[in-house]
Simulated assay, not measured.
Amino acid sequence: MEKVVVSVLLSVFLGFVLLFVGLFLGVSFFVGREKSSPFECGFDPIGSSRVPFSLRFFLLAVIFVVFDVEIVLLFPAVMVVGSSWVWVGGYVMLLVFLVLLFVGVIHEWREGSLEWES
């Protein structure tokens, strides 16, 4: 028990030491107008630095991430489908998950979020 307390205290102490070292090394001592201005290959900045982006592209990227995570969740189910120790409830849950995934794709398709051009 004493070893656990000592190791936890040592970890917390080491964490604080690394935090303060990072804060000290991250401080910029030379702050001026030139340092805080945006740099574009030696030229004065042209236009705004806040460039509007396509909301459709953002939504498509979010949809990709969501379905990518769902595909990763399917990997264990695919590995277990052929084995004999899976109970019927597992197959039902897999089927419900796939149906929800399919309904989500159909919804996004009807909404037009999967269209590349518009």
Rank of each mutant, 00 (worst) to 15 (best):
S28A: 11
P38T: 02
D44F: 15
I71F: 13
V12G: 00
E70I: 11
P52Q: 07
R50V: 14
R56P: 00
E34P: 02
F102Y: 13
P45D: 06
S83V: 12
L114E: 01
V99E: 00
L55T: 09
K35A: 14
W85H: 03
V8G: 00
V5Q: 07
L114Q: 01
G112D: 00
D44H: 12
D44N: 14
L73R: 12
L95S: 15
R110D: 09
W85D: 13
A61H: 02
F39C: 02
V86T: 09
W116D: 03
G47L: 04
G89E: 08
L98I: 06
F102I: 06
G82H: 02
R56F: 05
F29C: 12
L25V: 07
S11G: 15
S28K: 15
E115R: 05
A61F: 06
E108A: 15
I71D: 13
I71T: 11
S11L: 15
V51P: 01
P52I: 05
G89H: 03
S54W: 01
F97W: 12
H107V: 12
L98A: 12
S7P: 00
D68W: 10
L19W: 13
F13T: 14
S11N: 04
E117Y: 03
V8A: 02
L73A: 08
G32S: 15
P45H: 08
E111N: 09
G26I: 10
W109F: 14
M79K: 12
L55Q: 10
L74V: 05
L18I: 15
P38H: 01
F57N: 08
G82C: 03
V21P: 02
R33V: 10
V17R: 03
I106C: 03
S83A: 06
V6T: 14
L23Y: 07
V31C: 08
K3F: 06
V96G: 02
G32V: 10
V17S: 07
E108L: 10
L73P: 00
F30P: 02
V62G: 01
F16A: 06
V4E: 12
V88M: 06
E108K: 05
L95M: 15
V51C: 09
Y91S: 05
V92C: 00
R56E: 12
G82Q: 02
F39I: 02
V27G: 09
F16V: 14
V17K: 03
E117M: 04
M79S: 02
E117S: 10
S113I: 03
W85A: 07
V81E: 05
L19V: 09
E34N: 14
S84E: 13
I106D: 02
Y91V: 05
L25E: 11
F64Y: 09
V8F: 01
F30H: 13
F97N: 07
D68Q: 05
L25P: 04
